[in-house]
Structure formats: C-alpha cells, structure tokens
C-alpha cells in the first residue's frame, strides 16, 4: 500500500468532512426567528434519525430474526422512557441471545 497516497486520501476525507460540519456552525451565528424555519429545524433530529434507523436496523446483525427481536425490545424500552444506554444494551443483548439460539 502506497503510504503517501493513503495519507493524502485520509487528509482529503478529513478536510471534506470537517468543512461540511463547520460551515453551518460558523455561518448561522444568530438564532433563526422565522417560525417556519424553526419548525423545520425542530423536526430534523426525528426525521434524520428515523430515516437512518429504518429499515437499516433490520440488516444490522447477521440474521433478521435477531435484528427484529432487538428492534422490538428497543422500541418497547424506549416507549417506557428507559435511557439511551439501557435501550442500546437491551437491543444488543436481545440480538445476542437470539443469535445464540441460532435463529
């Protein structure tokens, strides 16, 4: 593997990724007051996370049975307001157990 090529590639990746992250933080210094835009921003966390999670979660482990079981447990725990760590580990633990059963 050509090391200079790799290092330049890694640098390009880092610069592009950082530029995407830093631009809005530096440009939008004032609080946006427009109600429509504020509403739009209010929904972003929910829509982006929902789109990233489904249906990708169902192929996040080796078998669909374990990922479906993990997903159900995660939704149930989250429904009862369990914290991030409990939900995350609950999902992983369930997927692990179902995977162990060979399903």
């Amino acid at each position: 593997m050509n090391i200079p090529y790799l290092l330049i590639g890694i640098m390009i990746m880092a610069v592009v990724t950082y530029a995407i992250r830093v631009t809005p933080m530096v440009i939008f210094r004032k609080k946006i007051e427009n109600e429509r835009i504020k509403s739009f921003l209010y929904y972003i966390p929910y829509t982006v996370l929902a789109a990233m999670t489904f249906p990708a979660i169902f192929s996040s482990t080796q078998s669909s049975a374990s990922s479906i079981a993990g997903c159900i447990v995660a939704v149930a725990l989250a429904y009862f307001n369990k914290g991030l760590l409990v939900v995350a580990l609950g999902a992983a633990g369930t997927a692990f157990l179902v995977g162990m059963l060979g399903l």
Partner: peptide
C-alpha cells in the same frame, strides 16, 4: 464474533431511544 455482531444494533437502539419518547 456473536458478541461483536450483536453490538451492530446498539447504535440504532440509541436512535430509537431518542425518537420514540417524544413521538409517543
């Protein structure tokens, strides 16, 4: 391997923990 495989779902679990309570 079974453990690292199961951990693949953990981050999605976190996302679910964030979107479900307010959606409810």
């Amino acid at each position: 391997e079974a453990l690292s495989d199961a951990m693949g779902i953990a981050l999605y679990g976190m996302f679910i923990a964030i979107i479900v309570p307010p959606a409810r």
